[in-house]
Amino acid sequence: MPATRLLAEQLIARPSVTPLDAGCIEMIAARLAPLGFVNEIIDSGPDTFRVRNLWSKRPAAHAGQARAAIKTIVFAGHTDVVPTGPLEQWSSDPFAPTERDGKLYGRGASDMKTSIAAFVVAVEELIVAQPNAPLHIAFLLTSDEEGPAVDGTVVVCNVLKARGERLDYCIVGEPTSVERTGDMIKNGRRGTLSGKLTVKGIQGHIAYPHLARNPIHDLAPAFAELVAIEWDRGNAFFPPTSWQVSNIHGGTGASNIIPGSVVVDFNFRFSTESTPESLQQRVEAVLQKHGLEYELKWTLGGLPFLTTPGDLVTAVQAAIHAETGLETELSTTGGTSDGRFIAQICPQVIELGPPNASIHKIDEHIALADIEPLKNIYRRVLENLAAA
């Protein structure tokens, strides 16, 4: 069995449902140590939600260059997986990796234990072939990406920032491809900003509206205005910023009571053309314009990031083409990832992984034919950057 698949199966077999790591990080650390990596376990969070993080780095040999001139590339990912859902709906045990019809089934097969296995084997192959490659290589792994993501990658990034650790490139192993590994990579992600709006009224009998004030009616004109706003027009890499309402709750359930308040949950997915501050100011200006009595709590889930074509994108595109013949598509679509934290301390971040059609689903899987090409692409990226 190829080394990448073997390691992927060993990781899938560990039931690391977020925030549990189930020993995955120790397994990876033990594998990296003989290669010259210095492992640092960084635990975070309360005892009831303990998160395990790994920062592991292999300094490059001088290789005729000043050490300060040697670039650092980080492979980043998560060992935690989402819950399985109803076990009886799986065709096989989600934590017993199973081959069937040319696919490898198991929770985490695509998101993203195969990527982690491919990272490790790609690095092993590079070090065997080029033990003095002029690259500092590092791994940043967490067991808190599928959960709240407050004790995972962001904690490690804060530690590295406080130390003044310089990162130059980062590849996040998120499943970004559509049909074939390498057909799409993410060179950025939109930011996410959520709001919980409570508009206050006066509760009363519906037959005596003059003795009450209906907050739903008060909110409606402001709602209409917010829906119609063009927040920005996006740019060459991002679609326009989107504002969407996810929940509205008002009333007691009785049909003859005017509610005393209405609560609205909404979210912005925003491009680099807007800032959290500008979006907050524009929303509150509309609410104040309509004279609403309200409370508004904001939650910034992540800032947008963008890696414009440069050294890393060029190295990745060339690696994908050499391995698969594909001309990869750059994209910033989809949800958030831990790339949003890494981008705060690393100027070039891309996401590259296998097809994502089955992620978070019953019978999650990866095509066997995608595993070795993924590992080879990662190795080729290292070779391209080492030769640059």
Rank of each mutant, 00 (worst) to 15 (best):
residue 221 P to W: 04
residue 95 F to C: 13
residue 20 L to R: 14
residue 367 A to G: 12
residue 168 D to Y: 06
residue 170 C to F: 00
residue 258 I to W: 11
residue 75 F to L: 12
residue 174 E to S: 05
residue 130 Q to I: 03
residue 158 N to S: 14
residue 356 N to W: 00
residue 234 G to V: 09
residue 5 R to H: 07
residue 229 I to Q: 15
residue 276 P to L: 07
residue 264 V to A: 12
residue 339 G to N: 01
residue 6 L to C: 09
residue 86 P to T: 05
residue 338 D to W: 03
residue 218 D to C: 11
residue 275 T to R: 06
residue 226 L to G: 06
residue 267 N to G: 07
residue 316 V to L: 11
residue 211 L to N: 11
residue 69 A to V: 08
residue 164 G to Y: 13
residue 147 G to F: 01
residue 340 R to L: 06
residue 40 E to R: 15
residue 157 C to H: 03
residue 277 E to H: 09
residue 40 E to T: 13
residue 33 A to H: 08
residue 200 K to M: 15
residue 329 E to T: 13
residue 294 Y to K: 04
residue 280 Q to I: 13
residue 146 E to A: 08
residue 278 S to F: 08
residue 326 L to M: 05
residue 189 R to D: 10
residue 223 F to N: 14
residue 9 E to T: 13
residue 252 T to F: 10
residue 45 G to Q: 08
residue 83 P to E: 04
residue 258 I to L: 12
residue 225 E to Y: 08
residue 192 T to V: 15
residue 193 L to H: 10
residue 299 T to S: 09
residue 375 K to I: 01
residue 313 V to S: 07
residue 248 I to F: 09
residue 201 G to R: 04
residue 332 T to C: 11
residue 336 T to C: 03
residue 40 E to H: 11
residue 188 G to D: 02
residue 328 T to K: 08
residue 134 P to K: 04
residue 155 V to E: 02
residue 224 A to M: 11
residue 297 K to W: 00
residue 303 L to R: 13
residue 58 R to L: 06
residue 67 R to S: 14
residue 10 Q to C: 06
residue 154 V to N: 10
residue 259 P to Y: 08
residue 104 L to N: 08
residue 41 I to Q: 09
residue 101 D to M: 06
residue 299 T to R: 14
residue 17 V to R: 08
residue 130 Q to W: 10
residue 242 S to C: 14
residue 52 R to F: 03
residue 89 Q to A: 12
residue 322 A to I: 03
residue 142 T to Y: 01
residue 96 A to M: 13
residue 262 V to M: 14
residue 319 A to I: 00
residue 157 C to E: 02
residue 178 V to M: 10
residue 117 A to T: 02
residue 183 D to R: 02
residue 77 G to E: 06
residue 231 W to E: 04
